[in-house]
Design a protein around this nucleic acid. Structure first.
Length: 507
RNA sequence: CGGGAUGUAGCGCAGUCCGGUUAGCGCGCUCGGUUCGGGACCGAGAAGUCGGAGGUUCGAAUCCUCUCAUCCCGACCA
């Protein structure tokens, strides 16, 4: 058989990005679609990534003074109705509970019974139900700030779903805070956006752009919505986290009032912020390649696959003894704040089968150890940030230090690579013809990877935003915080503009 | 909710137009053997009643009616 180069994932990113994404998830065994419409089953390798995300973020929330709590999954319809924009924003995607029990229908089936006097909405987000509690908890300025976080599941009845990116039920974290003043609430909103940005870059190795959402894209009921936007390898944008300044809207709707320092009653100022299992989608699309998942060491469920190579029972015994020694050497070892985990894989499969298994799962390092290595007192180490064939012989005595250092390098390489990719695919555009050309694929039937982030002037008029969206499916991803003052003309209508915003196609 | 398509073994599919013995193929799985440092090979085997209901017929995966579900394209979206 000819040993021609082939990729572990087919099709490749270039051939069919959307299909490649599904295949990476399948090959890495992260998740699968469930029998339940739009819902996914998150499998151990995928769930472990989520647990790592939870662990790290939870620590960050604690450090910033937040405490975890839990609120009901059901929201009475009347609560939901209190904030008008909020209702409008979520009404079309709510699962509603209308009955409380099932009865035998006499034909071997079941029928709905016990109709509720007031239907319950399965939370699509918890502002309204949490607001009811907050109204009780907050009476005085001395009760503030109130800094709460909830880890929960959410249901949004989306029309079209994609594993991790958009599922009917998803897991997330939602922070909800109450403050005495506008300034303090705004400060909180931006502080948590910073936490998200730091997490994305330091742990997920995904560079993000912090900015504000336009009026058309902001959270229903929010005064301002801020976001972190990242670029995927098909050059589309993915909103990876949001933080909302809710003003007094929800405080008024829920009656969150307190007596201030002057003894007067006033409505509080609230915020909410969240990230979801979508981050796993971001992780996949930001780093993975045509050989499967690629995981930054700081978020990987496990870091090193140890692969013994042997032909018979005698060699197995010989090699396994060393493999167990290596495994033991990593016990209780940390790379920065991350515990290093290993996977000793001596399954009865060919070594290449086991090798590819771990490549596809995105494990950062692989240690191969065979009879030749045992004889020479060394092992072969392969890194996920290099070609699958690239292997380095490392003496047994230096394996741990080599690996710990390599993990750090790999983490840094992924971030640098993602930064470079984003830089290469970000352009400043001033003429509308260039803008349309940039976002128009060569092949309309089967669009190739095209476009990217376009920094262009925008007048702030929603009509221009809508027109571009209708024409090109391109939206204003955000008005970046770091956008410099610059006089220019709106890319769409030509009116005066003072800042460039980021336009892109998005998920 | 509009437009299009599909439901046959765990997965991917053929067979359906032109009804006819025991419903096939690839992958996967199980067992045995040879292999094993770049995705192995040979042999044997298990597994489906054809989305569901009804009808036509001597006979239905195949024809008819109804129904359910899923997928793709639009509007929505963390």
């Amino acid at each position: 058989m000819s040993k021609k180069e082939r990729t572990a994932i087919e099709p490749t990113r270039m051939e069919n990005y959307a299909e490649w994404y599904q295949q990476v998830i399948k090959a890495a065994d992260l998740a699968e679609t469930s029998e339940v419409r739009g819902c996914m089953v998150i499998k151990p390798w995928g769930y472990a990534i989520w647990e790592n995300i939870q662990r790290v973020l939870d620590g960050m929330f604690r450090e910033t003074g937040h405490r975890n709590a839990y609120f009901p999954i059901f929201i009475p319809k009347s609560y939901f109705e209190k904030e008008a924009e909020h209702v409008e924003g979520f009404a079309k995607e709510c699962a509603v509970v209308t009955h409380s029990r099932l009865e035998n229908d006499g034909q071997g089936g079941l029928k709905l019974a016990g109709e509720l006097t007031e239907p319950y909405i399965v939370r699509p987000t918890s502002e309204t139900i949490i607001g009811v509690s907050f109204a009780k908890w907050v009476n005085s300025y001395r009760d503030l700030p109130l800094l709460i976080n909830q880890w929960a599941n959410i249901v949004r009845w989306e029309m079209r779903t994609r594993l991790f990116l958009r599922t009917t039920e998803f897991l997330w974290q939602e922070g909800h805070t109450v403050h005495e003043s506008r300034e303090e609430a705004m400060e909180e909103t931006l502080k948590m956006l910073d936490v998200y940005a730091r997490f994305a870059e330091e742990y997920l190795a995904i560079p993000v752009i912090k900015g504000e959402k336009t009026e058309g894209e902001k959270f229903p009921g929010a005064v301002n919505t801020y976001c972190i936007e990242s670029m995927m390898q098909d050059r589309k944008a993915l909103q990876s986290g949001t933080s909302h300044f809710l003003g007094q809207n929800f405080a008024q709707a829920s009656g969150i009032r307190f007596q201030n320092r002057d003894g007067e009653f006033q409505h509080a100022w609230t915020t909410s912020w969240g990230v979801s299992t979508r981050l796993i989608g971001a992780l996949i699309m930001a780093h993975s390649d045509d050989n499967g998942l690629v995981l930054p060491p700081k978020i990987a469920p496990s870091h090193i696959a140890i692969i013994p190579i042997y032909r018979d029972a005698e060699e197995h015994k010989l090699v396994m003894a060393k493999a167990l020694e290596i495994e033991a050497a990593f016990r209780n070892k940390n790379y920065e704040d991350v515990r290093v985990y290993t996977e000793l894989d001596d399954r009865d499969l060919t070594s290449s089968e086991r090798n590819w298994h771990w490549i596809k799962k995105g494990i950062p390092l692989r240690i191969e150890i065979g009879p030749r290595d045992v004889a020479s007192g060394a092992v072969m180490i392969a890194r996920r940030d290099l070609e699958p064939r690239a292997k380095q012989s490392v003496p047994l005595t230096g394996v741990v230090s080599y690996c710990l250092q390599a993990l750090g390098e790999i983490q840094a390489n992924f971030l640098a690579k993602a930064r470079q990719f984003r830089a290469e695919n970000t352009v400043r555009i001033d003429r509308i013809t260039d803008f349309y050309a940039y976002f128009t694929p060569q092949n309309a039937e089967q669009p190739e990877i095209h476009g990217g982030f376009a920094l262009a002037h925008w007048c702030g008029d929603i009509a221009c935003e809508e027109k571009i969206k209708d024409d090109l499916k391109v939206t204003v991803r955000c008005i970046p915080f770091d956008a410099e003052e610059e006089l220019g003309a709106c890319i769409c209508c030509g009116k005066e503009s003072h800042k460039r915003v980021i336009f892109a196609k998005s998920y």
